Amino acid sequence: MMKLLAVLLVVLIAAALAFVRLAPSDPARWHQMPDSVTDRDLEGGAMRRVEGNLAALDTIIRDTARTRVLAGSVDQGMITYVTRSRVFGFPDYTTVRQSDDMLEIYGRLRFGKSDLGVNAARIERWLDRLGQAG
Rank of each mutant, 00 (worst) to 15 (best):
Y81P: 05
W126P: 00
L22N: 05
A6E: 08
D101G: 11
L103E: 11
T95Y: 07
Y93S: 04
R62H: 07
Y93M: 14
G107H: 01
I13Q: 03
A46W: 01
N119F: 05
R84F: 00
V7A: 13
D128L: 14
D63L: 09
D35L: 08
K113D: 09
F88N: 06
T94M: 11
L127H: 06
E43Q: 13
F88K: 03
A28F: 03
T59R: 10
T94V: 15
N119H: 07
G77V: 06
L5R: 13
L4Y: 12
T83M: 12
K3A: 11
T83K: 10
A56P: 00
T94Y: 05
S85K: 01
G117R: 03
I105H: 07
V96R: 08
V20R: 01
L70N: 03
T38P: 00
E43G: 06
L4V: 12
D58T: 15
R49V: 15
S114N: 14
T64M: 07
P91T: 04
R66G: 06
D35W: 04
L109T: 03
W126T: 05
T94S: 11
Y81W: 09
A71Y: 01
F88L: 15
G45I: 01
D63M: 08
V82D: 15
Y106Q: 12
L5M: 12
F19Q: 06
T67H: 02
A65N: 10
L116R: 12
F111I: 09
I61Y: 05
A16V: 14
R122Q: 10
G44C: 07
Q32L: 09
